[in-house]
Amino acid sequence: MRSFVPSLLRWAAVLLALAWSVGPILLVVTSSFKEARDIFATPPSLVFAPTLDNYRALWAHHPMFFRGLLSSLVVTAGATALTLAVSSLAGYVYARHLGRVLQGTAFVMLALRMLPPIIITIPLFPAVNALGLNDTHGLLILLYAAFYVSIATWIMRAFIAALPRELEEAAEVDGAGLARVLWRIVLPLAAQGMVAAAIFVVVFAWNEFVFALVFTTTSAKTAPVVIAELLGTVEGVQWGVIFAASTIQLAPILALVLLLQRYLVAGLTAGAVKA
């Protein structure tokens, strides 16, 4: 009895926490399968006949959303590939070489994480327009990579530093060049680090809102901006359509986060806390 009551309380608290974190998501996903009159039923309807009407309406009236999804996919893939390429190289250098100048650059790299992203839109907006880069996937890819290169580098550095040096030295003795050592030995062994670094970039690029709002208008507009537009319509928000769009947008990324959560923990420890 003495340990029964506290453990019951503990479970109640855990359930409350789960309701807080998962409840709103479940609400959106289930409501996306409800008819308009059921979404805001009083009292809320728990039992309902599921319908795909909202998804049909989204497909029929908002083709922009699906183009947005495609944009999000291109931008996310591009930003992740670029970030991984660039920060694997840098992470290797920081893990294996020391020096005052090099450490100085590491300091600048980490200090720049403190910068509020929105301030760089002031000079970048005119510059980007002058260069004709506005509303392109390439620009978002470069921006997202720039903001995640420091955390990704630090994660790669931590994972590479944990590898034994002897393997690289043995390969060098056998006449392998640096590129070969990196490609054949270091990166395969640091693959877990690459997954950990990638998950942060993927989640950020897939969901980012501010830069996408500022720098895209039509052809590179990403899914979050389209959802925000649906939410911002003046003539009555169509909740069913928004819930359908949100469900499609969140399903893959939520699955990825749940699946790879242990990399998230590892990456956060290596990249955020230790740095």
């Binding site: 974190s21 709103p24 998501i25 809102f209 979050p224 969140l250 939520l254 986060v257």
Partner: peptide, 8 residues
């Protein structure tokens, strides 16, 4: 889970 959700 909320970490995976976009602000919109």
């Amino acid at each position: 889970a909320p970490y995976a959700i976009t602000e919109a």
